[in-house]
Design a protein around this nucleic acid. Sequence first.
DNA 1: ACAAAAGTGTTTTGGGTACACCCATGT
DNA 2: ACATGGGTGTACCCAAAACACTTTTGT
Lengths: 265, 265
Amino acid sequence: MFFKLIFVEKLIAMFSSTNSASNPDSEKILENISVDCVIFGYDENELKVLVRKESVLFNNSIYTEWKLPGNHVRRNETIDATALRILKEQTGLEKIYVKQFMVFSDPDRLKKRNQDYEWIKPRLIDDRVLTVGFYSLINIKDIDNSLLIEDAKWTNAYDIKELMFDHKEIFDEALLKLRYDLLHDPIVFELLPRKFTLTQMQRLYEAIFNTVYDKRNFRKKVGKIQYVIPLNETQTKVPHSPARYYMFDRNLYEQTKRDRFDFKI
Amino acid sequence: MFFKLIFVEKLIAMFSSTNSASNPDSEKILENISVDCVIFGYDENELKVLVRKESVLFNNSIYTEWKLPGNHVRRNETIDATALRILKEQTGLEKIYVKQFMVFSDPDRLKKRNQDYEWIKPRLIDDRVLTVGFYSLINIKDIDNSLLIEDAKWTNAYDIKELMFDHKEIFDEALLKLRYDLLHDPIVFELLPRKFTLTQMQRLYEAIFNTVYDKRNFRKKVGKIQYVIPLNETQTKVPHSPARYYMFDRNLYEQTKRDRFDFKI
DNA sequence: ACAAAAGTGTTTTGGGTACACCCATGT
DNA sequence: ACATGGGTGTACCCAAAACACTTTTGT
């Protein structure tokens, strides 16, 4: 009856660590499934990603490592709800854009680097965890930075070289998917303030695609997008000719969307 | 200690039904995660999908219903391995193209239609199952139809109206993803015989996109694709001018792929 | 006055699309 | 001879890309 013993051990682990025995059913987790989030933000003309610091003890030394925010899926929530829960915890924001892009299922994905595995082992009920990669888009200006968890940091997306587990791979896939989606859905506007200038929009495209565009051609194309509305409002107190503000009109978009390739710039 | 009792029940279920106690670890399943496969084939100028028949008992009547082939993920396999295992079971084929496209995670996804839920309940350890949708591409001519399971059937993709659980939704998403991928990766050739004529290729595009193309324009574009090689071989015994055969040269593709949008037709 | 970014048109080039007829083969 | 699908060229249009100067404001 060896296997029964294993299960009793896991029961104890389950109800003593992640799930306390007093938790309602709604907080019980699925031990084999998690969600990891690549949270993109845009600030100071840079595409940024939120990463979390962890102190890892290994060979009697403490290493500082970075990972993506993530969590297990609960018994009675969709994976989108899991992603939104993680976002709320990390940024305090609700109602933001989240999108799943890929499942990572290597049976050894948590064991590739010894120090990472030692760190996570005591936090798991079962070390076989498939994770669903999500990316999400937030406007950094909306964040109350006092709510940001101490160990969370915004990093330039192009400075990310190494993360725990397979998180660098998850990040790379997220960036590919973001670039694709940007050309097919009106998601740019999730990263921009409600009122934005065309230069801000152009700089955002340039940050995401890591390139530069011609100003006149860019404006010509945006000019053809009907649901990007020019406002009768311009910048003030800028030391140069004040730029006009524009807004995304979601209603107009929903009505007029036909050509799914409108966003190619 | 109510929860312990639940677990003992599940243990019994686990080791008496899906996993017998004598099974090696390699065949233990993850009870909360499955893979469902949308298997596309192309035959007689039609895009087809493999579906399975199930006899469902409900309200003392037996209903015939159709579902996508699927299975649970095993403890030590990737989800791609799960998909390939399903493909082998259903078609006898190995080394075929499989691609994950989306996770379906509604906690009630198996409970939406009572008759379906009654059918699957005794087959499950836990009724919360997230499923990863895969699509796969096979050349129907490669199939030894005597190996096809009795309850499996090839159906015209545009005739699929209703499937068990959320499988119609999974199918719809698969078709969207197939159409996208077709324009970005050289996957058409998975559905074609090794040597094919340009008309065969055109009919396949037309079947997948459910449209028609101009013959001359189609040939002009394919003519620019370097890794589609014309052969010195033509049809025989056809009651019309014999068509030239072409081949996909994967090596040449790997060397020359740059523009990821070569496949847009 | 100067620094900084806003805003604005034209030309060239290549790809997309529409369109019709003759040819080779088997029966 | 006829039925069937194979194979070919041109003209028009529009979108993409390259390119430079003037204007407006704050300091």
